[in-house]
């Protein structure tokens, strides 16, 4: 029997996901031994035409990381969908929009204007903006269009599975590869991680009080963090109660609060909303003014509660007014 054909692709993301693949270390040799890597532009030289040349459904599985921001990414996403049996959204950006998704707090025009005219390192008195088509003596040069907003992969194409995380934890990746190889896959649409929140596997859970009441918010740099006690009980915004487990709690073990990269469990439709409601519910004060003051202490609420997930919330983005 021929080896399954696998692909990897990189859209709008930092590249950390590619790094995660490399982090398989020796295990990557097993992967290479088990599958034929037919597309991995980050590591080897592949062109769009190589994909176009494939038969529809020729690739058995493709791991796609990164969100969709440009017309080229959108086009290739559709192309890969056609050529692949199992598309796995790989990493937070592909899964929920990720950090690039925070771009949705601004309109396209605001971003272009800022980056090409106002940014500290830019001098552009003529206000020259990148054009999709530019005439040069040699002919025409084309650039992909910078789309209006960022989308997660499943907002552009059908996605079969999700490997969450920023980047996905190696253990989850290994399990996923195993599942693909053995053909023992869960129902389509499943997030390939445990369906329970992080508190479940957090070593600090026992120190979390039954009657937790939030009286203040602190930032990690403001306090000496106790290494044993539940971080939420120390006033830090730990998103563990709302975030899928499976990571092994590396942040919490590193004495930092969970920031939510694995996203919500299967029953939650809007990750940011569920994190906000749980904290708001736990506020000790019932006085409106005190509550307002407490809320004001949260620096950058969207970046705190939707750091990896803004495009996949009900609101998606700032309206293009």
């Amino acid at each position: 029997m021929s080896k399954p054909k696998a692909g990897f692709n990189w859209f709008a993301s930092c590249g950390g996901c590619e790094e995660a693949v490399v982090d398989l270390h020796e295990a990557i040799l097993d992967v290479v031994a088990a599958v034929d890597i037919v597309f991995w532009p980050c590591a080897m030289d592949f062109k769009k035409d190589d994909v176009r040349a494939m038969r529809d459904g020729e690739m058995d599985v493709c791991f796609i990381n990164g969100a969709i921001r440009t017309s080229e990414e959108e086009e290739i996403a559709h192309l890969l969908r056609r050529k692949t049996k199992i598309v796995i959204a790989f990493g937070s950006c592909s899964h929920m929009g990720g950090i690039p998704g925070l771009g949705n707090l601004f309109t396209r025009d605001e971003i272009l204007e800022h980056d090409f005219t106002q940014s500290f390192s830019v001098v552009n008195p003529e206000k020259t903006y990148p054009q999709e088509v530019t005439k040069v003596p040699e002919g025409e040069v084309e650039l992909p269009r910078f789309l209006d907003y960022v989308r997660s992969l499943n907002q552009v194409i059908d996605v079969d599975y999700y490997l969450p995380g920023c980047p996905p934890p190696v253990a989850l990746l290994r399990n996923a590869v195993q599942a693909v190889l053995s053909g023992e896959l869960p129902p389509r649409g499943t997030v390939l991680a445990p369906d329970k929140a992080l508190c479940q596997e957090c070593p600090r859970l026992d120190s979390k009080p039954d009657d937790l009441a939030i009286t203040e918010f602190k930032r990690p740099q403001e306090i000496i963090i106790d290494e044993e006690k539940c971080l939420l009980a120390q006033g830090l915004l730990c998103l563990g109660p709302a975030t899928r487990s499976g990571c092994g709690a590396p942040c919490v073990n590193g004495n930092m609060p969970c920031t939510g990269c694995l996203g919500p469990t299967s029953r939650v439709k809007d990750y940011g909303l569920s994190t906000m409601t749980v904290f708001a519910s736990l506020f000790e004060s019932k006085d409106e003014k005190e509550i307002d003051e407490l809320v004001d202490k949260i620096v950058d609420p969207v970046g705190s509660f939707n750091r990896y997930s803004l495009p996949s919330t009900f609101l998606h983005r700032k309206a293009n007014v």
């Binding site: 929140a197 992080l198 979390k208 039954d210 749980v278 736990l282």
Partner: peptide, 26 residues
Amino acid sequence: EEVCSGCKSCIPMCPYTAIKRDDEKK
């Protein structure tokens, strides 16, 4: 139970103290 992480957030919320944590099942 399949989804509950035992995060305890709900416990102090119940005005009728109807919620407890099962320490065995977590």
